[in-house]
Design a protein around this nucleic acid. Structure first.
Lengths: 201, 201, 201, 201
DNA sequence: CTTTAACCGAGACGGTACGTCGTGTCTTAAC
DNA sequence: GTTAAGACACGACGTACCGTCTCGGTTAAAG
């Protein structure tokens, strides 16, 4: 499937000049490039347009706001879409998901994601986009494994599924946002296993 | 009356017109009032100045930025400064701290605090202020109780102190920011006890 | 045997799809319709295209600019092309020409013509089109009658022909553009005769 | 009276930072400078702001639109405000007024004034400003002399005053706008006298 | 009866300018 | 020396049109 989540499904034969893939790539590339030097808040649509040598209108035509552009720019980075290997059991599934999440947040995109999470707190549109493209996929996958694990007796069932997700993910995001200096190799390595102990039967 | 963190100690009789306490109160009141209707991002210094019938300069003279104003406005609200009763043991101390935190975040200020936490992700100055006025007091108190509890054998010592703080606070903030709809009465009541189980010996 | 240069420019039967008369009419109609509600400056090619259900390209293919479209739209209105009856003498000819001009400028197209005249002041292309389609025909006809009238002794010959045109037409346009409120029935009726007195022998 | 027509009369001691005369001059100078190379239509507020090293807001704060800025820029040029010498009779008064008008329109500002006259055709605000700052002063002065001249028997009284103004000024503006190539030295010299003959008793 | 060429609508493209808002700084007179 | 008022340069916002372009699809004469 090649459509991203942000594209609308469309009839195979559309009227008018087709969307320029070149411009699209140029915009996403410019966005990623600029985010290396500035925060999400500082990043302006105008700066993206200028860097991408693209009209502002072209950006507004395809994305509703800055958050959406950044979200898609992040998705299009290498390593964002790599699927997980098949796990042997639910504990391993959870562990692999946590490892992937931590690896993602530890990369230079971690800061950007934290800022998107932040932006989402003030802006409903941004909230929806962040949820659809990042949070929901993450949480859904995790909830599935947790439910299975609770059924199978791998995990304790004294917490409801949503709370388990909070218990697993909360500490990661809290550390990222509250004291990112401690978001280091040691934490990356140890947390996924520690977290499992929190919820094991 | 004690000085707030932002005030500098001053000689009792200075030259010139003294700082207007009336203006200060007016600014903080206007800030709180405006935050009822808009997000931290939407709130502008200009709006505060206009509402408080105060010059912009007066705000900039006494606070370095929007975050600082809001932080102080929040502190000045009733119920923010109430001290906790003396706990019987460290578990109770932790539980009371978590209850207080959750109660605070559940109030209409919760959203504002989430937004400040958010703003801090993009802005170093805001980060420092949020840390000094909110995060550090919270974390320090918690770390003290945890250390004591680990020494006394009340809590497991398999996690380091910082991780325990993350494990306790992370889920609360994650729920507040990722799915605030579930930040409800039920959660408020059950979480502090559940959290204790996570770290108990 | 060979086509002359003139014939080459417009061979009677060209290859390819012929120009759509339907689109042309639709464009001119839409233009006239929109000009009832907005000024020449406010009118946009995009609005015409939308109203006429026509691609912008189709307009640009056949007219060099907005002024040209409007000029042709005006010409296609009923009453623009009605020829004058044969005059008995040059004074009558001039009088009839002035009457026709005033009648035209008094109609709801008067405003549009004033605006085209205006647009022509800033835009060379527009200037050329307005001149060719409106001013030159008007002036040429008038100059002819004036020359004849001066030869025949009907008119004074103390002014050169161009100046006489200015003296005849200038007041009309000045009133239209400087104080259109006075461009009324009374003026329409009296001016042509008064004007004649100005230039009579 | 030293206030220009565009300034509002104000109490002698106002609050707040006073208007920057430097910025004002810079804006008017930049406007005049840009008008040497482009038409009124092409001139943009942004270009003025950039050239004058001034914020756009500063322009919008003091002038309602482009026309107003240009109008004031023109007024501030040397030679725009020079008063006429006292005339010996009304014919001379009219002649001097016409000479002044023609001289003004023949200068490099003539084109700009024609374009302002043009702009006024499409834009009510521009119309009002052009009228107040240019047309009305011109016409009022002329009407006064005409009325006096008609009373004194210098001028024919078969036309009403407004029509006489049209007869005097119309040809000048028509030539300027319809065939500016003929707006030359010869015309400048001869027209004022010719015009007087048109309206003499 | 297919090819070819110019047309058509739709609409995306890179741009420019719009008029507004908020920033943080500044400059007054008043207190 | 602080205050309220408010002007200042700056930069970004999101929108409207510009004139050009690129599609898929007609339409009709030429081969």
């Amino acid at each position: 499937m090649e459509n991203t989540a942000l594209e609308q499904s469309e009839s195979p034969a559309r009227k008018g000049r087709p969307r320029s893939e070149k411009s699209k790539k140029s915009i996403l590339k410019a966005t990623n490039s600029l985010l290396l030097h500035m925060s999400v808040q500082e990043l302006s649509i105008e700066a993206i347009a200028k860097k991408a040598k693209v009209g502002k209108t072209t950006i507004y035509r395809w994305w509703p706001n800055k958050t959406a552009v950044i979200m898609e720019a992040l998705s299009n980075q290498p390593g964002m879409q790599t699927p997980l290997p098949t796990p042997r059991n639910n504990a391993e599934a959870i562990q692999m998901q946590l490892e992937k999440l931590i690896r993602l947040l530890h990369s230079k995109n971690g800061e950007t994601i934290a800022q998107l999470f932040a932006e989402a707190q003030s802006d409903e549109k941004a909230q929806a986009i962040f949820e659809n493209n990042f949070l929901t996929p993450l949480i859904d996958a995790m909830e599935y494994s947790i439910e299975q694990g609770q059924k199978d007796g791998e995990f304790a069932d004294r917490y409801d599924v949503k709370s388990v997700v909070d218990i697993l993910c909360g500490p990661i995001f809290f550390r990222l946002m509250a004291h990112p200096a401690d978001f280091n190799e040691s934490f990356m390595k140890s947390y996924p296993k520690e977290a499992l102990r929190l919820i094991s039967a």
